[in-house]
Design a binder for these strands. Structure first.
Lengths: 212, 212
DNA sequence: CGAACGTTTGATCACGATCAAAATAGGTGG
DNA sequence: CCACCTATTTTGATCGTGATCAAACGTTCG
């Protein structure tokens, strides 16, 4: 069920999405840009043979669904409860042109959406489940909200698996290994503590083998 | 050795690059856009631990190095002898704004560069060396120039390996398997014949297991 | 309380990496 | 034209990682 096209106006509209709801659908025409103000969104594509992939995770401040292609290349699904502002393509385009004209730096928001997707490619191009997971967590730490008991970590392991091109079992085991090595801790399923950022970085960059 | 910044003018310049030469470097500021008029270019990144990845292959007609980020995210290297037109960022920006205004479709050239990168992510996120290779070849057939003895296929297997996140050995064996199955043929090292496009598509999309 | 979903753990197996070496192609100079 | 050198491809053998299958456990929500 797609978002009701209730407002015929082209002005920006503030909207909300419950957990699991879809902001826009893969294959639909790119006629809305969503600027996230609160919550986490995952980009999802389903291959023809039904294989699911998570192409990126997006956070508050990110703009997603920019019309660099005619049709959305992924579905945007709410991982948590999400608030966002929806712009019609036309109004967004004008903003872009204006921004292009004013500052030398242009297309900043486009880079902000494309870059995570680009980096995922690099991530899963590297070998080693532990390496991938460490690099992934490392890239997340400055995007997650802090809380008394650690960073708020609302991602499902299933989604992480589909993001890293691994199975849920492997993600689980790799997380356990990081816990055993006292690099991270997870006091709750949705809490993450980085105990040793340096070791995490090291695990991410070195082509480490599995067993100590 | 980078391209000499001979022309201080900001006007478009037609340039050439020998095999192996670099059009622009990963990490450099994005102040030039290159529009390929002839030849094949590979996008290359080197991870901190020295791992090489080929992020995309580009062909005649493609524009690369668009300033969606401040710095180039990959080096552009000539796979074959390459002719291209180099635009200064400023002049390109004006062209973009103009194009934005005129037709409803905007940012077409940006999509043209970003889309291959996006699709590589999807490709290597799927399991199976044979699947990846088949999907890769399938995506190439309409970009390669025809010749009397098959499509001109100038890509090195090493590059294909770094593109598909496989080893050269695996690429070689997978190619052999496709030859054995009479799906493709390679009369020469730089020639490719698609004998059975349907079977190629099938191999690409089905999650096929290895042995018949 | 029970059902659905996600996580955890265990056991086995297959695919692709790795190591090693031969074969082929490409290029250069005698 | 052949000898020689390098780069790339090809083939073989072994090994290890992560997929797969199966089942138990924990959470969440009706």
């Amino acid at each position: 069920m797609r978002i009701s096209a209730s407002s015929a106006t082209h002005e920006p509209v503030t909207m909300h999405a419950e957990v699991g709801k879809t902001l826009f659908w893969e294959g639909d025409e790119c006629d809305h840009v969503c600027e996230l103000s609160h919550g986490v969104v995952r980009g999802v594509t389903i291959s023809e043979d039904g294989e699911r992939q998570v192409t990126a995770f997006f956070f508050a401040g990110d703009q997603i669904g920019l019309p660099v292609t005619d049709y959305y290349r992924y579905s945007a699904e709410a991982v948590t409860f999400v608030s966002y502002v929806r712009y019609a393509r036309h109004s967004w385009r004008n903003a872009l042109i204006e921004s292009c004209r004013s500052d030398g730096k242009l297309l900043k928001s486009i880079g902000a959406e494309q870059d995570p997707i680009f980096r995922r490619g690099l991530l899963i191009g590297r070998i080693g489940a532990l390496t991938r997971l460490a690099a992934f967590l490392s890239s997340l730490i400055d995007r997650l909200d802090p809380s008394p008991r650690g960073l708020v970590f609302p991602l499902l392991q299933v989604d992480i698996a589909d993001y890293l091109a691994l199975t849920p079992e492997t993600v689980c085991r790799s997380l356990r290994r990081l816990r055993e090595q006292r690099i991270i801790d997870m006091p709750a399923h949705d809490r993450l503590l980085i105990l040793d950022p340096a070791a995490l970085e090291l695990t991410a960059h070195l082509g480490l083998r599995a067993n100590p």
